[in-house]
Structures are given as structure tokens and as C-alpha cells.
């Protein structure tokens, strides 16, 4: 079996006017196929069934390796933000998006990696079980989340989502494991209903951080909108480390949400949140406010 890497280039022929469901174009689906087979993979354009070739200009080697790990799919073209379900249940290999991507990318993926050079839509990595997603732009809401109506621990189970820009609200909603890193700011309800895993927000967070969390860990390096009264303050630490990232400044640690009743922890930076934390810090005796 050949160990060579194979790359498939799929470029949108025209800017799509309706959503494109691209769940079947993924490395583990195309492994071992001939290039003509790839062009004829069925996809949905709006409510209409069509084939890859109709929507994309496809460039690929004549035959693809059997092992999906050696396959890379590169998606480009204007209007890729209409593409949804990219890398659905993906189980190995790599997908690169040269621009923005639509909702539900990496939904239920279990292995492999997705790299998005632009921004990502909502539900990125929802119910993800493993693998990694990297976004160089911003991401929408419900990153690594469960879907509405599902039980609280049905969100992301494992794997890593790294967003170099900002993210929307409901990051890690109902997350059960894995890691989400947002390098800029995030919206409201970070880690709501979270049951396990780690969320790091290096910029600011909105309101209701960790609402109804029952486990897991949230690190808010910037400002937070507030701390819910159902969290109690545990201690103040000098620095926080997680996943190779070290934040050398004092953090207040909270445990909650007692409504669940939960044992999740939130680390909130002291410097940025003095007004919010001041009344709470009085509750711990030995604390010296820097």
C-alpha cells in the first residue's frame, strides 16, 4: 500500500445560493476510490440531490490511498460558508477550508483534523468524539455543544477545538469532555450545562459563565460579565496552567453550579474582574488582594 499523501482540491464553481450538505465528502469516505468516483459522490444542494462534480471543480490523483490518514481534502472558492455538515462523523484524515465554512462542521467527528483558515459557523464540532479542529478566524455559537433537546452530557466528548479569533455564545453547552480554546473573546453562557472537559477563553466572556455546570473546568483569562450566585468561591491561586498554556497572574477559583448540584470549577482572573470579585473575596479570610 502506498504511503504517499494524496490531496483532493475541490473548488466551488459558483457562489451557492442554497445550503450545500457536504457530509459525504470526507477522507474516510473517499479512501480507496478512483477520482471519477469522487466526482460522483452524492451531495445535497438545498433539497435537491446532486453530485460533487456539479458544484465543485475537483482535482485529485487518479487513485486514492486506502488509509484515510493519508488523504487531505482542500475546499476553496467563494461562498463556502453555505457548506454544512463538513466532516460529519469523520474518522481520520484532514480537511482544509481555505475560506469560511458554514454550520455543523465536524459534527460527531471522531478522528482526524479540520483546519479552517477563515471563520466557522454555528455548531462547530458539536457532539464531537475526538480529533481536532482549528479555526484561524472567528467561530459562531454552540461550539462543541449538544443539540437542542438532548441530555446535558451529550455535547463534545473528546478532542480539541482551537479558535484563534472570537466565538459566539453557548460555547461547550452540555460538553462532557475534550478541550475548547478561544484565544479572543466569547459570548454568554460559556460552559453552560457542562459535565466535563476544559474551556479556556483568553479574552473576555459574557454573562452566566458555567451556568448549571456539573463538572469540568473553565478558565476565564479576561473579563467576565459576572459570577452566578450559585457558585461559591474556593480559593485564590497565583497562576493557572492547562494544556501547556500558563497564565501567570492571580485567579479566583469557583466551584459550582450548586443548582445541579455540581463540582465544576471556574478560574476567573482577579485583575480584570476586581469590581465583580471584590465582595466575594471578603468571604475567604486569608486572601490578600493584589
Amino acid at each position: 500500500m502506498s504511503q504517499e499523501k494524496a490531496s483532493i482540491y475541490a473548488k466551488l464553481k459558483a457562489k451557492p445560493s442554497v445550503p450545500i450538505d457536504l457530509r459525504s465528502l470526507k477522507p474516510d469516505r473517499v479512501a480507496g476510490l478512483k477520482s471519477s468516483d469522487i466526482k460522483n459522490i452524492k451531495i445535497m444542494e438545498g433539497g435537491r440531490e446532486t453530485v460533487v462534480e456539479e458544484i465543485f471543480e475537483v482535482e485529485s490523483p487518479a487513485a486514492l490511498p486506502q488509509n484515510p490518514e493519508n488523504i487531505e481534502i482542500i475546499i476553496s472558492g467563494d461562498g463556502a460558508s453555505k457548506i454544512r455538515y463538513l466532516g460529519y462523523k469523520m474518522n481520520g484524515g484532514r480537511i482544509v477550508v481555505e475560506g469560511n465554512i458554514g454550520p455543523l462542521a465536524g459534527y460527531k467527528m471522531s478522528r482526524g483534523s479540520i483546519v479552517i483558515k477563515g471563520s466557522a459557523g454555528n455548531w462547530l464540532g458539536a457532539r464531537m468524539k475526538g480529533g481536532s479542529i482549528e479555526v484561524f478566524g472567528d467561530a459562531g455559537s454552540f461550539i462543541g455543544a449538544k443539540l437542542p433537546g438532548e441530555k446535558f452530557s451529550k455535547g463534545m466528548k473528546d478532542g480539541t477545538i482551537t479558535i484563534h479569533g472570537s466565538a459566539g455564545s453557548y460555547i461547550g453547552l452540555g460538553m462532557g469532555g475534550g478541550t475548547i480554546i478561544v484565544e479572543k473573546s466569547a459570548g454568554n453562557m460559556v460552559g453552560g450545562y457542562m459535565a466535563g472537559g476544559l474551556i479556556i477563553v483568553q479574552g473576555d466572556c459574557g454573562d452566566f459563565i458555567g451556568a448549571r455546570m456539573s463538572g469540568g473546568r473553565i478558565i476565564a483569562v479576561g473579563r467576565v460579565g459576572g459570577i452566578l450566585p450559585s457558585f461559591y468561591i474556593d480559593s485564590v491561586v497565583g497562576e493557572v496552567r492547562a494544556r501547556g498554556r500558563i497564565f501567570k497572574k492571580p485567579f479566583a477559583l469557583f466551584v459550582g453550579d450548586v443548582l445541579t448540584p455540581g463540582r465544576g470549577t471556574i478560574a476567573v482572573s482577579l485583575e480584570e474582574n476586581k469590581t465583580v470579585l471584590q465582595p466575594l473575596l471578603k468571604l475567604i479570610e486569608e486572601v490578600k488582594v493584589p
Partner: peptide, 14 residues
């Protein structure tokens, strides 16, 4: 209405 999760990934297009 109360069970959106009952419908996920069950769609069979017309």
C-alpha cells in the same frame, strides 16, 4: 416540539 432530538439525522428527503 419538546423533542427536537427525536428528529436529528432522521430526515429522509422527498
Amino acid at each position: 416540539l419538546m423533542r427536537p432530538e427525536d428528529h436529528y439525522l432522521t430526515n429522509i428527503p422527498s
